[in-house]
Every structure is written in structure tokens, then in C-alpha cells.
Amino acid sequence: MTPTAESLRRQALRQARTRALAGRARAATRQTPMRPFLVCTCGGDRYGLPLSQVSQVLPGRPITAVPGAPAAVLGAIAVSGRVLSVLALARALGRSSVTDSGAGHLVILRGSAVALAVDRVEGLASVAVSDPDRPASGDNFLDPAAAGLSTEAVSGYAPARAGAGDEPGFVAVDLPCLLRRYLP
């Protein structure tokens, strides 16, 4: 690698960081309530989990299989003395064609003994909402029916924001609705 290319790369990194810091200052000034989402990828799909319902993110580990379980339930793991059921997020959402890669991340949910198996946890994303009680409402979400998506266990679709970086949009998952089918 030539020194000129190295200097260019570093310059690009610095500029990106400067833009991020500038964006943070703008976000802080906005008074609209923001809801943070944990963005995960399963195959080619991106899903957003409400951050308030997430307890912990773990690297992938071996999963003990449970006989007689539904197809979406991969098995059980033990975390900090608790036994958690592992649910494949893509299968639970009906995307059974998506293959689960073995090395992935586990997202432990808050308030229930369930861990969601995803390919990778990308990061956080905050979306402005109009009604704090409903997870996905407001101008930044598209109605699932209008976007051609299934309404079951999906609260909305957040399209890519034009200003906040070049990240693509994600599907906001309605976790209680999703878990209702797998928990008593």
C-alpha cells in the first residue's frame, strides 16, 4: 500500500468520524422522542428489536437441542445460571428459507427466558416515534400492509434515512406478539 493511499484512507476515516460527531450534536438538540432499536441481520434481512426489551448480547455458543420442540426453537442454553430457550428469529418470522449460520450472535431478551439466534448484531438505531406507547408509530415507519409485508409480529418498517448515514432500513419486530406463539 502506498503512503498516499494510506493518508487518503485516514483522511476518509476522520471525515466520517467528524460527520458522526456532528450528527450526534444535532440529535441531541432535537426534542422529538427517539426510540432506540437493536439492528440484527438474518441472511439478507435486517430486523430491529426494541432496545428496551433486550437484556444482553452474547457471541454464539453451542446450543443443546430440545426434543419435541417447534421448528423455530433451536434448543436451550445456560447463561449465568439460567436456562434460556433459543429461538431462530428468521424462522420464527416465517423466513424459514434463510439458513442459520452456526457462528452468530445471541440476543437475550429482557423479562422472559428467551434468547434470539441472529447472524450478527449490527448496532443501534434510533427512530423518532410519535406515540411512546406504541413501538412503531409515527412518520418514520411505514405501515406493514402498505409496504407489502406480513402484519404478523411486525410492527412496522423503517426505511433508510437519508440524512443519518447510508444504512439501509430495517423491519421493526413486535416482540410480545412474536413470543406469544412460543411462550405459554
Binding site: 437493536l38 428496551s52 444482553q56 448480547v57 450472535h105 429482557r110 448496532g123
Partner: peptide, 17 residues
């Protein structure tokens, strides 16, 4: 870097909590 990534995510979760 991967571990740091997860650590940062957990830290963010904790911070949100």
C-alpha cells in the same frame, strides 16, 4: 475487535436500561 463490538453493544444496552 469483534469482542469489543459486542462489549460496546452490551454497554449501550445497559446504558439504555
Amino acid at each position: 475487535s469483534e469482542r469489543t463490538h459486542l462489549l460496546a453493544l452490551n454497554a449501550a444496552i445497559e446504558a439504555a436500561a
